[in-house]
């Protein structure tokens, strides 16, 4: 049971990383225009949040 949860988490976060990096560096401005002029450190800071919330962001980006 615990190992099942673990593998689910690992898969979820791996997908998250694959999505979060291009999202934060290429598509951030698509969901928030204020982020268009954001610095590289700011975009880097957004990566962990995007790793957690990638399904929500994926839907948001597709709708823009």
């Amino acid at each position: 049971m615990i190992s099942l949860c673990m593998y689910a988490c690992v898969i979820y976060f791996l997908f998250g990383i694959c999505f979060a990096v291009p999202f934060c560096f290429l598509w951030l401005h698509r969901i928030d225009t204020l982020a268009a002029s954001a610095s590289i450190p700011f975009k880097l800071l957004c990566v962990p949040g995007a790793v957690f919330l990638w399904p929500v962001l994926f839907v948001k980006v597709r709708h823009t």
């Binding site: 928030d32 982020a35 700011f42 800071l45 957004c46 962990p48 949040g49 790793v51 957690f52 919330l53």
Partner: peptide, 8 residues
Amino acid sequence: AATSHDFW
């Protein structure tokens, strides 16, 4: 912690 910035 990851979503504590105002952006989120």
